[in-house]
Amino acid sequence: MPQAAITRRRFITIAASGMAIAALGNVRAAWTRDIAPMRWRGSALGAQVSIEIHHPDPRAAMELVDASVHMVRRFERLFSLYRSDSAICELNRSGVLIAPEPDMVELLRAALRLSQLTDGAFDPTVQPLWQCCERHFARAGADAAGPPPQELAEALAKVGYAGLRVSDDRIALARRGASITLNGIAQGYATDRVVELLRRGGLSTTLVDIGEIRAIGARPDGTPWRIGLADADAAGRTFATIDLIDRAVATSSGSGFRFDRDGKFNHLFDPATGRSSARYRSVSVVAATATEADALSTAFSVMSEQHIAELVAARPGLEVVLSNAAGQLRTLRS
């Protein structure tokens, strides 16, 4: 029987088992054996959360659920811009974090490596651009052309990953008024850490989705997990599928968040210009880790196709699916 596609979705699902899994529709899974899953539902990292662990041992399943929830909650206290008491909000308020937690240091170091790799196309310090657009479009009668040039220039002057200083005992923002966002990488990092947890728990065939998707091994029958890439402009429809075995996939699209009705201003900011990117309808990246796939899908959204192709050619194991403004697809592989 052909495999159906699992469509990338915005809420968190961990579907873990040694049993076979097949996708039904775009968000649900059916198991070949009647195993009652252990479930937890809530919200975290700015999204609705649903964690399900399918495991033949109910006690082991419950322990994995509890451990996964605890880990996701801990990351939320570090990385979430939606919590005023998070570590990232404290850094943005004061410009410095003393004795930061190791996960914050690890993630920021990964962010800086990926910033260097993409020549700054991925940049965690673009938060002032978000704030500039948010303030502008919150005003009554906001100009559809976007923030005034002077306001945009002032925000852009605060952007630049070179001004983010990270060490084991201190994180600092060198530019006055600078702030960071980890929305283009934190979900990937959380996915990778949960994968590590589930591997330690003995799971060898699992699909984890915490905003980004990563497969542990193949499906129990040895075939790849098949992931459907959602059409940004047509809910419930996919435009391509990707097969995963021990790989991760992440997708970025300007339609994920729009400041204005026409969608000219979205969350994918080009750190070089301060403007939102409209190069592609969507960018999907397959990589060894969800952290890398997440950050690169963000970076590639503002990069030219030629620049993307050059980076892919130089970095083994990458696969990129570009959907241009007209909906035409191109796949790049290293």
Rank of each mutant, 00 (worst) to 15 (best):
D246A: 13
I51G: 02
G202M: 13
R74H: 15
L152H: 09
D169A: 05
H307T: 09
L24K: 03
A234V: 10
H70L: 12
E52Q: 12
P147C: 08
V194R: 04
G120D: 02
I245S: 01
E310H: 14
G18H: 07
D119F: 02
N26V: 02
A313L: 08
V49R: 04
G42H: 13
I213S: 03
T118F: 06
A287Q: 03
D262V: 08
G317Y: 11
Y280E: 07
F11V: 00
D243H: 09
D66Q: 15
V195S: 04
I171Y: 10
I180T: 06
A60H: 08
F257M: 12
M38H: 09
A157P: 04
P148E: 03
A15G: 07
S323G: 09
V72I: 15
E305L: 11
E90T: 05
K158L: 07
L78C: 09
K158F: 01
A140C: 01
V195T: 10
R281T: 07
S94K: 10
R113V: 03
I12M: 10
V320M: 03
V126S: 05
L97K: 00
G236E: 09
N26R: 15
I213C: 10
R275W: 08
S68T: 15
E106A: 14
A190R: 02
S94V: 00
E90F: 07
V286L: 04
S115M: 01
V285F: 09
L152I: 01
L311H: 04
G160K: 11
S84D: 15
A314E: 12
S282R: 03
V302C: 14
P56C: 01
F11K: 06
R139C: 13
L64M: 14
C132G: 08
V126Y: 10
R59Y: 00
V321P: 00
L318T: 02
D169T: 02
C133F: 02
A250C: 12
N266C: 05
S301R: 02
I21L: 15
A138T: 08
L322E: 04
H307G: 06
G177N: 06
T273Y: 10
I53V: 15
P124H: 01
K264L: 10
T205Q: 08
T331N: 04
G222E: 08
R165F: 01
S334Y: 13
S277W: 06
R261Q: 10
Q127G: 00
S284L: 07
G327K: 08
R33M: 04
F259L: 12
S304R: 13
T331S: 13
D143Y: 06
P271G: 06
E292V: 15
D34S: 13
R170C: 15
Q328P: 03
T205L: 00
R214C: 09
A287L: 05
A5N: 03
V312S: 05
R333F: 12
A60F: 01
D270R: 06
F269G: 06
L108K: 04
G163A: 12
L322W: 11
R315E: 05
C133W: 00
L114C: 07
I98Q: 11
A29M: 11
T118P: 12
G236D: 07
Y161W: 15
T181D: 14
F300I: 04
Q150M: 07
I98T: 12
G25Y: 03
V194D: 00
